[in-house]
């Protein structure tokens, strides 16, 4: 579960929109062959319609969510271990229920664990509450740094999945004041950005400056002479970290 501290709190709306990966145990209410189960699971890959459950935080209208992949990892009679890669906002409990409906025997979610949220997975420095306590005490009372450095990650690690735009030093301060990113400020752009995609604006030193919404495709950002490339939505870097343009 990603936890953000102080200035990084602004990343929350961005992290909530990122794709997720889950490991889930689904319990079937009847018997079904592996072959049929696998065929039904395949049907659930791709865009699906989902009505948020009764107990939910959002409006209960049917919406489309994309299931990128469902793998059956293991099965023991009516217990099925699934690995699911899906779009943000997919209800896995609902997905299990709907799979049960299509199978004709019913099913429910028995256990759930999220294994990845955007860039942060079980493999990227996942730590326990005990690690947080221990590493903080070791640093605070004994000056030992390497442990807490493995526990508290630079916010940049949480946005590694988001396409990057790297900008000039001279363009940084205006962005820190909330300005949109104009084409001349851009140095490098990652491929695959489409209009309205979320992008991360970085310095050449690898610092996250801001998050924004693309106004151009990657290719246009490189070939255009002028124009707004990215509209800034969340500023992460404090102003005056880099000098303002007019002081140079």
């Amino acid at each position: 579960m990603p936890i953000t501290l102080n200035k990084a709190v602004k990343l929350i709306p961005v992290l909530l929109k990122e794709d997720k990966e889950y490991i889930c145990v689904m319990k079937l209410h009847g018997d079904v062959s592996d072959k049929k189960l696998k065929a039904v699971l395949r049907e659930f890959q791709g865009p699906i319609y989902q009505r948020p459950p009764l107990r939910s935080a959002v409006k209960r209208t049917v919406r489309i969510r994309r299931i990128y992949k469902i793998d059956m990892l293991e099965r023991e009679n009516r217990y099925v271990l699934l690995k699911i890669w899906c779009e943000a906002g997919t209800y896995i409990r609902k997905l299990c229920h709907d799979i049960g409906e299509v199978l004709g025997i019913g099913a429910h979610m028995y256990e759930l664990r999220r294994t990845r949220a955007g860039s942060l997975s079980e493999k990227t420095n996942m730590v326990t509450l005990q690690d947080v306590v221990d590493s903080y005490v070791l640093w605070k009372e004994h000056g030992i740094e390497d442990y807490i450095r493995r526990v508290i990650l630079p916010m940049e690690m949480a946005v590694e999945h988001i396409p990057k735009v790297v900008i000039r030093d001279s363009a940084v301060d205006a962005i820190c004041h909330g300005a949109a990113l104009a084409v001349p400020g851009i140095l490098h752009v990652e491929t695959g950005i489409r209009v309205n995609d979320i992008v991360a604006i970085f310095t050449l030193k690898g610092e996250l400056v801001a998050i924004g919404k693309a106004r151009m495709r990657s290719e246009e950002m490189v070939s255009s002479k002028r124009g707004i490339a990215v509209k800034t939505t969340q500023v992460l870097m404090p102003p005056d970290t880099y000098p303002p343009l007019w002081r140079q």
């Binding site: 990603p2 501290l5 990084a8 942060l120 807490i148 990650l153 992460l236």
Partner: peptide, 22 residues
């Protein structure tokens, strides 16, 4: 101006940090 994320001290890390909590 600025510095690579790997050169932040612990106070700075806490100021803009993320924890991937189990």
């Amino acid at each position: 101006y600025g510095k690579p994320p790997s050169e932040r001290n612990v106070e700075e890390l806490i100021e803009t940090g993320v924890i991937n909590l189990d």
